[in-house]
Amino acid sequence: MVFGRKNKKVVPFRTAGELDAMAAAGAVVGRALVAVRAAAAPGVSTLELDRVAEQVIRDAGAVPSFKGYHGFPGSICSSVNDRVVHGIPSADEVLAEGDLVSIDCGAILEGWHGDSAWTFGVGALSEADALLSEATRLSMEAGIKAMLPGNRLTDVSHAIELGTRAVEREHGLSYGIVDGYGGHAIGREMHMDPFLANEGAPGKGPRLVVGSVLAIEPMLTLGTTETQVLDDDWTVVTLDGSRAAHWEHTVAVTEEGPRILTLRSE
């Protein structure tokens, strides 16, 4: 889920034991996402996917982070095609062959949050949609690689941006980096300071230290960088109707390198 607040001098950090606890929460999120993807098929509603995720989360003894958060009604954000983020699961939204689906999911286990998202296709995707999802994943991975002690917050932002531009050259396509949305610190709250932009100049903002944790989540489109929020006050869609993708992992800085806390078996 995508929010953010003011910066601090150091990105919030956790002990090794606390990171393990966050990884346990992240593993629940990973299992929920895998179950949702397995259930996603033509004729299945996004509300059915929401129920799958909630069951997995509650069976693990965890609580869905999103449900009731500022009034959000679902356990997942289900954003299909031109929906970027914060799509509300609905019985009326039924998946079809070729849909591009972004699922964002969070869970709380023993007070710690995990937050992760990925994009996948229902059946076969068009080549452009498949490349868009791959580009978003690669941009996220570029940001993850910048999660190193001593880096500043916007070093991660800059890495995401450079990753996007590199994959543009590789794919021979132009991707829009969604304006105004990004990642965030996370721990015993889902959304904490600082906000992590998905582009920008390096060398600014709070420092990363061992144990710092950020949710890294680029959102790319096949067109505009501009969005609008629908009348439900949640669903963010591309202004030009172009398709969008969203990938996210919760990641910690360690002495051994970046540690993904929301691992899943894909």
Rank of each mutant, 00 (worst) to 15 (best):
A39D: 02
E255D: 09
S157F: 02
A40L: 05
D193H: 10
G106M: 06
S242E: 12
D82N: 13
R137W: 13
L109G: 01
P218K: 00
H171C: 14
R259S: 07
T227G: 14
G203H: 05
G172M: 04
T262F: 00
L230A: 05
H171P: 10
L47G: 02
G241E: 14
P218R: 03
G26A: 09
E18I: 09
I103V: 09
T224K: 15
G241H: 13
V236M: 11
A166F: 10
I103K: 01
D240L: 11
A252Q: 08
G61E: 02
E256Q: 12
C77W: 10
E266T: 05
T154N: 05
A215L: 01
L263S: 14
G143D: 10
L230M: 07
G74V: 02
S174R: 14
G121N: 07
R243Y: 15
V251D: 01
T225C: 03
M22K: 04
G87P: 03
A53V: 04
G98T: 10
G4V: 08
F66E: 01
E134T: 07
P42L: 04
C105Q: 15
I76P: 10
S139K: 08
L100P: 01
A24F: 04
I186C: 08
D232M: 11
E110W: 00
G26F: 00
L239Y: 12
V29Q: 13
G111V: 02
T225I: 02
K6D: 06
D104S: 07
V167L: 10
A62Q: 06
S265A: 13
E168I: 08
L173W: 14
G172H: 11
G71A: 00
